[in-house]
């Protein structure tokens, strides 16, 4: 049978959950941007990549630990996101959706190749004194400290986002715009302002996810488009594209799916799992496992 080795199976599931938490965080910004702006951001992965490089260079140049970089990345990427929204994205708000998509494709290419030009295509990794530390749970199961801490931070950030969306006026306004733009606008919500904040917040969370991911993934210029774009799309399509909770659960599903694929099928093909989940979901139920059918 498939599950001959129970310890291995447990490890695979636990690692899948730890990985999935990071995938969720990487994807939640995409959900936010898509929900509010109805804007498919192909350059999403590049903001993960920028977050990873931010973490790498902060450590390399200023000896700043990734956990501190995370706190710096949040406001920095927020402002960057707001500026991109104001200067570029806003002008396309009435353009046909093909122009919007092509714009983000151009942005993605530009960022990947700029990174390649400025930072060279070399593979880099973030190594701190904590990288090799392990958390021993039982005699058979010990986990990488970095993975556990990243997961916990990702969950705390997701929970904060959830509370922000539920409790604050801005959060409620964002959800109102996601549900129905016209009505939200009639209720006195400034769509312009909410679009900017959502884009900024989305980019900020994505950059933060990049900082966390830099501790477990190799950093190179096209890492965003090669892996995180499709993983994030798989997660948001699986999660129904609208809610924070849907996205989080879908991230965990993908994480577990990938680690199981890598263990029981082949490491090489495990990269294709997110693509295959994505395509199957798009065909079978494009509104996601938790999604409602949109009118």
């Amino acid at each position: 049978m498939l599950i001959e080795n129970v310890e291995l199976f447990t490890t695979v599931i636990v690692y899948g959950i730890l990985l999935g938490g990071l995938y969720s965080l990487a994807a939640v910004g995409l959900t936010l941007i898509f929900g509010v702006l109805r804007f498919v951001n192909i350059a999403h992965g590049e903001f993960v990549m920028l977050g990873m490089y931010f973490s790498f260079w902060m450590l390399e140049l200023f000896h700043v630990d990734p956990l501190l970089s995370l706190l710096l990345a949040l406001p920095l990427f927020f402002v960057g996101g707001c500026v991109i929204e104001r200067v570029l994205v806003k002008r396309l708000s009435t353009a046909p959706s093909s122009s919007q998509v092509l714009f983000t494709v151009g942005l993605s290419l530009f960022l990947v190749n700029l990174a390649q030009f400025v930072w060279s295509p070399d593979w880099r990794s973030v190594v701190t004194p904590l990288t090799s530390e392990r958390v021993v749970l039982t005699a058979d199961l010990s986990l990488s400290l970095v993975r556990v801490s990243s997961f916990v931070i990702a969950m705390v950030m997701a929970a904060s986002l959830y509370l922000f969306m539920i409790r604050t006026d801005t959060g409620r306004a964002i959800r109102a715009v996601v549900q129905n733009r016209q009505v939200a606008s009639l209720m006195g919500i400034s769509i312009e302002k909410i679009s900017m904040i959502s884009f900024g917040l989305g980019i900020s969370l994505t950059g933060a996810a990049g900082v966390l991911l830099s501790q477990t993934f190799t950093i190179y210029p096209s890492v965003g488009i090669d892996t995180f774009l499709m993983k994030s799309f798989a997660v948001i399509v699986l999660g129904g594209m609208e809610t924070v909770i849907g996205t989080m659960v879908a991230g965990l599903v993908l994480g577990i799916g990938e680690t199981m694929g890598a263990t029981y099928i082949s490491v090489g093909y495990s990269n294709a799992i997110s693509f295959i989940i994505l395509v199957i979901m798009l065909i079978v139920k494009p509104t996601g496992i938790f999604g409602k059918t949109r009118a």
Partner: peptide, 28 residues
Amino acid sequence: AICFRLKGPYFLISTLALAQVLQVIFLN
């Protein structure tokens, strides 16, 4: 046959994903 069931951005994402799947297959 797979992608034309989808419209707009979903069509684009699914074509991108299938090309990536082929890349993974040809690499492996």
